[in-house]
Amino acid sequence: MPAIFTPKVITANALLEGDVVYLTQDDTWSRHLKDADVLTDEADAQIRLIDASARTSEVVGVYLADVSADAKGPKPTHFREAFRMRGPSNYPHGKQSEVF
């Protein structure tokens, strides 16, 4: 039996600013995880990843990140992704203020 595909979002860092971005449903990049397109089909996710990775003049380091998704939208399942979403814990220099 194939492993169950956990929901994912496509994420990267913006080329110019370096900050964390997520791929939305209409293939734009958003600074906010809540806007991200949640991918639940593995084949679809792989194709979207290939296409997104080709956009090298916009982003760097494109990959799929696990999320859990409910009616309120995607949430990171790993703490690394939670930190990427929020910003550093020592100063409010990231997106902390915008996320909550």
Partner: peptide, 26 residues
């Protein structure tokens, strides 16, 4: 790099030679 004539694969070693890393948030 910004105008697209260098890919990230080409640019990365060049930026690292000049001390520029890409970290988690920036």
């Amino acid at each position: 790099r910004i105008d697209g004539s260098l890919t990230e694969d080409e640019f990365k070693p060049l930026r690292l030679m000049n001390g520029l890393y890409l970290q988690l948030h920036a």
